[in-house]
């Protein structure tokens, strides 16, 4: 049997293929054989670099998945701490959202009577500020949640700059979450800062919160305002497939986009 080379020993040690006795001998040799130790130091730099390369490759694959990600189904987003006591509010929200749907559908019907329009015109025809916000109730003394409640009130009073300032304070206190990003997106959209609104609403999609369907609808509108038709179409198609409050006007808006 031939004596293994240093490289073969490095490989076997790294891959944990040495017997206990050989491993002990290897470690003892590192202490006494300078050349062997220097060779092993070089070897570990190489293997650590290979590990690092592969880690970054995986991270890149994750980022690419993020970039092409369609939001997961509501089931997978469901938070375990959602409690039955939230249900009535949630249902009430859907009724209100349905009322918004009806209003928007009426706006859509009026729009149908008008001339063909560009995507920004479609945006203008369909956009109205969100009438009903349903934020989670603050638990205990949660200053960040209080700020979000105040920001929601400011939004509903059309005081969008104040709302944005309050949201920024909330972000500094507790970081971003879905509700915060959603509210931020709504305010930015109202201020006609469409690209920023798009970014905020896109980020909001990463979180679980009550008004995800609303967030998706306003994201589609932000795309429309910027003439981003394929993105708007894709988002509307998702809404159309969901049995939610925006199904009707998404179908309508998609049809209008097809006609152009």
């Amino acid at each position: 049997m031939t004596t293994p080379t240093s490289d073969e020993l490095y490989d076997a040690y790294y891959r944990q293929e040495l017997s206990a006795a050989d491993k002990a001998a290897f470690e003892a040799r590192l202490q006494t054989d300078t050349d062997f130790a220097a060779g092993y130091a070089e070897f570990t730099r190489l293997t650590a670099g290979i590990q690092y390369y592969n880690r970054m490759r995986l991270v890149q694959a994750f980022k690419e998945a993020d970039a092409r990600q369609e939001p997961a189904s509501p089931l997978t987003f469901r938070r375990e701490e959602d409690t039955p006591k939230n249900v009535p509010l949630y249902r009430r929200g859907w009724m209100l959202a349905a009322a918004v749907v009806l209003l928007l559908a009426m706006a859509g019907a009026l729009f149908l009577l008008a001339d063909r329009s560009s995507a920004p015109d479609l945006y203008a025809a369909y956009y109205t500020p969100l009438a009903q916000l349903e934020l989670a109730h603050p638990r205990g003394e949660d200053e960040s949640a209080e700020l979000k409640q105040q920001a929601a009130a400011a939004y509903q009073q059309a005081d969008y700059p104040t709302s944005l300032q309050l949201l920024e304070k909330a972000r500094q206190l507790a970081g971003a979450d879905g509700e915060l990003l959603f509210l931020q997106g709504l305010n930015l959209l109202a201020l006609e800062r469409y690209a920023e609104a798009e970014q905020a609403l896109l980020q909001a999609r990463e979180f679980r919160f009550r008004q995800q369907q609303d967030a998706r609808w306003y994201l589609a509108l932000a795309y429309l305002a910027q003439e981003k038709r394929p993105e708007a179409r894709q988002t509307l198609e998702t809404l159309q497939q969901n049995d939610g409050p925006y199904q009707t006007q998404s179908t309508e808006l998609l049809r209008r986009l097809e006609q152009e």
């Binding site: 995986l58 694959a61 994750f62 998945a65 993020d66 990600q69 939001p71 997961a72 997978t76 987003f77 938070r79 507790a174 970081g175 971003a176 979450d177 879905g178 990003l181 980020q203 999609r205 990463e206 979180f207 679980r208």
Partner: peptide, 28 residues
């Protein structure tokens, strides 16, 4: 196989990121 790993990442990420940022006050 890498695809199932990426799919798992895609599936759990929203809940995980929400949970981590809200429970440990971490930026997104």
């Amino acid at each position: 196989q890498e695809a199932p790993l990426v799919e798992l990442y895609r599936r759990l990420k929203p809940e995980f990121v929400y949970w981590l940022s809200s429970n440990y006050s971490l930026p997104f």
